[in-house]
Design a protein around this nucleic acid. Structure first.
Lengths: 352, 352
DNA sequence: TTGAAAGCGCTAACAC
DNA sequence: GTGTTAGCGCTTTCAA
């Protein structure tokens, strides 16, 4: 069996309390004592039993991260960022997949598994604003995404409206006037689709370009196939356009394929813009212009805020955090920079 | 505070042992008693304390999954599959990222975090065959990948040689004779690169096509940029070829970009083949022919075997499992089927 | 079939 | 500064 506090205490000739103090970096320990304890720990290769610690302290040292699914690149990259942030803060991340299903999301909030974590970073997809009350849970919870606003918890999110507006303005600056949108959701006001569409309209308005409903391509989901289908419908409708704004990168990449199949040149005939700055946008042909919505900052903030809540003594009013965004101009929107495939900065190994 | 066994026992008018028996589905409980206990549990909304259970039983109900990084699609899709399998088996997955770094991989094997898990599914990238002894750990361990063979643990992997051979044979059947490879590793015999290259050579040999070293493109890593660079080098070298076999999909997609930039038509001028069947291979233009190495089966087998080991009483000799593979012919290798963007089967929501 | 009691390894009061 | 002690909530002998 593994060594316990008692074993260490015995070897070091002290009580278990002293050993515990050493392990938890308590002050006021005589250096000589500490030294002896440390030696005993090394000798026995002692590691504290985490279950016992949790049972006693009520803390697990883990935080949960609930997201729709890892096979969607956006969430894989988000999870990667959260795990790295958590590591810097000395905590472990437990990932949960919801499939974007409202019932599973709600169930997860009160799942027995919540016992395993001290708090939760929650990125819902199925829940809506009306479900905000489900977020009144008995543990620290940080909300991500644009499904619920003014909820009872801290909320970390991106500047959807401003970022979409900046993306659209970029296309306008490039001389485009007939900018189609791919990925709108019928009647949605809140949610990523609604907010980004609002940014688009704001940009048009500011530029004095009339809004044309015929340019809006609706989809139910934001998978690549939906971007392709919506674009095909736009082409079939005969409406004229000189740019496409995909409400996320995946949609834009789907659109890219269809546009090229139709013999249209990007960006000469149609400029193309995405949203998310997924890794793969740097490798499409042409490379995809997009918006970096501040994913790294969102992950870091979410972890930091969650840990603050976990360690807080008094309750505080919920706070809202907005990450900085950045329009990234690449080939698909007419950048004239030479076509290069980036090198060193993406050089991370894979060998499947 | 949350309800405990004692509370339930008191309400039900039984001892905590009886409640425990009910919870753990022990046999020999009088139906009436069971009924009363169940009612008490429901009334108090009782959930067993997992830390206490772990402390006492030595089991955590979690298994670890160590992989290089989630932002690499292959591993994100693998993680997704493992989580789903684990869920079916009633256990929770704790993901750890190693960055593919040998030292981190070795460190992880004896990390205190191993206490949190009953066993580990381990996909190393930095470790090699010489490090096999590090796998002699005191807990159930299932190895994935092609870095270490004949190690001291169960091993679940794919038929790299056979699958690569089948992929190459497919290109040969399509009339290609000058098949370039992208992603070879200098002097490597084991590892994905070495094994898949061997399959390639076997196929050539069987077809009576001489092996030409000039057709082999070496890369250090398997990122998209490496596939692009290696392909560019092939083109610059002036060597003639009528097909490219990317040793994984990511490499092949990098190659696709460079080939198209050079004005070559796929598949008319150059046929292209990948390996892994990543989701995105169905969305490139043209869609990418590839090999499904049986990822779902690998995940399911790994989880099942790990749980068998965890529940085993007596030790057993390590076993090796090979998943079935399947060559998937798409447009990039000359499929004549109409260009369609798949619909319903990929319809899983994303809204970032 | 059910109960009583011990104890998993640790932390945190409270002594000294 | 350091030691003693009492549980955290559960499972598991062992009895009844």
């Amino acid at each position: 069996m593994a060594a316990t506090l008692h074993d260490v205490a015995q070897i070091a000739g002290v009580s278990i309390k002293t050993v515990s103090n050493v392990i938890n970096d308590h002050p006021h320990i005589r250096p000589a004592t500490k030294q002896r304890v440390l030696e005993a720990i090394a000798e026995l290769d002692y590691h504290p039993n985490l279950s016992a610690r949790s049972l006693r302290s009520g803390r697990t040292g883990m935080i949960g991260l609930a997201l729709p699914e890892l096979s969607l690149s956006y969430f894989a990259e988000l999870a990667d960022a959260v795990i790295r942030s958590a590591e810097r803060h000395g905590v472990t991340v437990l990932i949960e997949q919801t499939g974007g299903d409202r019932d599973r999301e709600i169930g997860l909030l009160s799942s027995p598994r919540r016992q395993l974590t001290d708090g939760l970073i929650f990125s819902p997809l199925g829940m809506g604003n009306d479900d905000a009350d489900f977020l009144r849970v008995g543990y620290p919870l940080v909300l991500l995404g644009e499904r619920i606003f003014k909820g009872p918890t801290d909320h970390v999110t991106m500047r959807n409206v401003d970022a979409a507006r900046a993306a659209t303005e970029h296309l306008i600056r490039r001389g485009r006037r007939r900018i189609a949108v791919v990925g709108a959701h019928e009647g949605e006001v809140i949610g990523s689709a609604g907010l980004r569409l609002r940014g688009y309209r704001e940009a048009l308005e500011a530029a004095g370009i009339p809004f044309d409903p015929a340019l809006i391509g609706f989809t139910t989901l934001w998978h690549r196939s939906n971007g392709a289908t919506a674009t095909r419908e736009l082409l079939a409708s005969g409406v004229e356009f000189d740019a496409v704004f995909g409400l996320n990168d995946t949609l834009a990449l789907g659109a890219m394929r269809v546009l090229q199949q139709a013999g249209l040149r990007i960006p000469e005939d149609v400029a193309l813009m995405g949203f998310d700055d997924l890794d793969e946008t740097r490798y499409s042909l042409p490379t995809l212009s997009t918006v970096d919505p501040g994913r790294a900052e969102i992950a870091e903030t979410a972890v930091r805020v969650l840990l603050e809540r976990i360690n807080a003594t008094a309750p505080e009013a919920p706070r809202e955090f907005l990450a900085d965004f950045r329009v990234i101009e690449r080939e698909s929107s007419g950048s004239r920079e030479p076509v290069t495939v980036p090198g060193a900065s993406e050089e991370r190994g894979q060998e499947s």
